[in-house]
Design a binder for these strands. Structure first.
Lengths: 347, 347
DNA sequence: TTAACCAACTAAATCGATTAAGTTTACTTG
DNA sequence: CAAGTAAACTTAATCGATTTAGTTGGTTAA
């Protein structure tokens, strides 16, 4: 096992001082052409690479972005990460990903861990438990220490940071409007309780669309589930009852999973999609794409969101003394992807 | 913005030396009870946390595992990561995830980056391009430097490292045997070219199952696609032709996506699943679970795989001088999850 | 009385890299 | 020819924490 090369070992081998080696490798004019070339040749031959940890310590800069998300299993987060990764790489930043599993304690732990020298800043989507607790001391702490934070998707108010959001309300409105335009008049929505911001906002979009078209909203057609992240037996039961006990001709859901399960219930009840009931869901993922029938979806453009969040964070990091203390909210537009679960519009 | 506490700043504030602070916080008997308590109280009050970077440098140990995977978008990798995360956390390790996007250069870049001080060891699944190129210098380099490596899922031979594998052959055999037992005799397989190890092994399992039951294999019933990771137009076309031009009563696919698309083609051709054609796929993911009909799948137990890989790596890291130079291969058993795409067996 | 010894600290080296501040040697110039 | 200067290095400080090797003042035993 060969030890890794260090400046020290090179210096010893070549019988010069450590600083000469360092300067030679960084092309300093202080070092003679001859020595410089000799050292560089040696370093190249033995594949010297500076130790990142030492550099981080010296520069008090890690060039690493910490990403904290509730769950990686979600296709959406996956695409966001891809965007973050891409933008980071282009700007010479690394990405460390930590999962909170929607657990408050884990979110706090992860942040503290990464904040102790591992990262320069954070990109995060707040866990469900944190939102319920409304305890944001961990966020305020890292911000206090001068680490910039960018929140995305699931954000909270009252924190000194930038935000990147899906235009949830407008996205939902697009989806529901599409249903209305295609002829639906009795549209149901399967959403979450209001404390999950995305659920609340998407419900608003649903209401807005009805408003725009002057269609009355029937409260019975709104189903609020408490867990938006997965589909338990309880949720399944409520969705089934909701579908069977309502005479719907259209359905909007705030995620794919609800739509997929609803589609199953609808198929089993002998009705056809899209002719008897049309479906639109929020989030364009693998499920909506491959399902039979495939489901018309509101695409969140996760990759773009990730890129944007990373670019905002990197910007702050690169110009640290630009502390204008101004924080903005960027909205990522959604788009509707028409598939087989809705009727074609006549244009 | 308040600066972060360091031993230095505490020492200054309390008018003692840096080493006194360090020792006090680590409960050294060299420091008097009184001073110790005072320093600890101060540190607690102002929430002192040691700088990880400095510790890593000093200890030449980062307590971080580097994970390099082809694509995070895949549900399977997602579950593996969850397993790695869990095992790591329990043992006080961090996890850094990097994506290679199935690209050789990126895999090399990521490894070099992380190898320069950021991690103590690696868990990786080799990218497709690397397998085609058969260039493993980056792997050999980090191993040379004394960093242990554990490969999982997509592994290559001839590298001095441990391996954690799905029992691909047996898994495929389980799936195909199930089809045979349920009455299928003309079973097709949609797999990958042989250079992708998982494809090759699963094809073997398909052949083995036929062998066991004494059923002849018809070469026309084997479709080898070149891209196993996603479903392009070319693959779709070939799958469609394959399904329509073969008189099959059963189908085994090496991933979910192939099965889902095949199911669509079958449905469109007016045949019914599972009665006319039964389907089993490798990989238990969201698609097979939620599809209508849901698809019988060979579960890879990704989480268990991740845990195992992490536990092997951590073991090596904790006992570094145990260099017996012995490397093992661990197999994770698969299990069959029966769903709606196959007929129930009479037992 | 004084060497020995202990309690309770502090100083300094170390991890690996960067860099400001010296040092040496040769050479120019008034 | 002495002073000044530039070239080419080296020394040492620094990042933050740990740890080994001192140091100091007081107590104790011979």
């Amino acid at each position: 096992m060969k030890r890794k090369l260090t400046l020290k070992s090179i210096a010893k081998e070549m019988d010069v001082s450590i600083s000469t080696v360092s300067k030679a490798l960084r092309d300093s004019p202080e070092i003679s052409e001859e020595t410089r070339e000799k050292i560089k040749a040696y370093a190249k031959l033995y594949n010297y690479k500076p130790n990142n940890i030492a550099l981080s310590l010296k520069n008090r800069k890690t060039n690493t972005i910490g990403v904290i998300i509730p769950q990686i299993v979600h296709h959406f987060f996956t695409t966001v990460i891809r965007g973050i990764e891409a933008e980071a790489r282009e700007n010479n930043y690394n990405v460390i990903i930590c999962l909170s599993n929607n657990d408050f304690d884990k979110e706090v732990l992860n942040m503290e861990l990464l904040a102790n020298g591992s990262t320069d800043g954070f990109i995060l989507s707040v866990s469900k438990e944190t939102m319920q607790k409304e305890d944001y001391h961990h966020l305020n702490e890292v911000i206090e220490q001068g680490m910039p934070v960018v929140m995305f998707d699931r954000v909270v108010e009252g924190i000194a940071c930038d935000r990147v959001l899906i235009n949830d309300t407008q996205g939902a409105k697009k989806g529901v409007s599409h249903l209305i335009r295609s002829g639906c008049r009795k549209i149901g929505i399967i959403t979450s309780e209001d404390y999950v911001s995305v659920g609340r906002l998407r419900t608003e979009g649903y209401l807005d669309a009805h408003d725009d078209f002057g269609i009355e909203v029937d409260e019975n057609r709104i189903l609020k589930l408490d867990n938006i992240d997965d589909l338990g037996e309880g949720s399944k039961k409520r969705i089934k009852e909701f579908i069977l006990n309502n005479d719907l001709d259209g359905l909007f859901t705030v995620n794919e999973l609800f739509a997929v399960y609803a589609a199953r219930v609808i198929a089993q009840s002998g009705k056809s999609i899209p002719d008897d009931i049309s479906i639109v869901c929020f989030t364009d993922g693998e499920l909506s794409e491959h399902m039979v029938p495939s489901i018309t979806a509101v695409s969140q453009h996760g990759e773009e969101m990730g890129r944007k969040a990373a670019s905002i964070l990197i910007n702050k990091l690169e110009r640290p003394e630009d502390e204008t203390e101004e924080y903005g909210t960027t909205y990522i537009e959604t788009s509707l992807i028409e598939r087989e679960s809705t009727r074609k519009l006549l244009r």
